[in-house]
Amino acid sequence: MIWTWIFIAGIITFLTRYSMIALIKPKTLNETTKKALTYVPSAVFPAIIFPAVFLDKQGDFIYILSPQILAFFVAVIVGYLSKNVILTISSGLISFWIFSYFLY
């Protein structure tokens, strides 16, 4: 069954890319739509980030001084200051390992 869903997800992804190019007369999107689409990453990704950082598998809030919350704040600071993708991910992971080692 999973294969069916993978292919449907693939077709839908393709259509998001192809739809505007397929139009015979390139229609321009209205300004509101354009503006809203630029917000998509800021609207979607936090919904994946926050539960993964602040909740356990059952959906309960975890202790505020947990390694992953502390490490996430390290990554936020590093990311804000450096704007560097690799530095952000690696600082978060490494501090997660360090906090896990010392807090447990």
Binding site: I49, A52, Q68, G79, V85, T88
Partner: peptide, 17 residues
Amino acid sequence: GLEFAIPLTFFSLILSE
């Protein structure tokens, strides 16, 4: 605990915002 790389990766995608 590489699963923790998921939120970190998604966070890195919105750094410019």
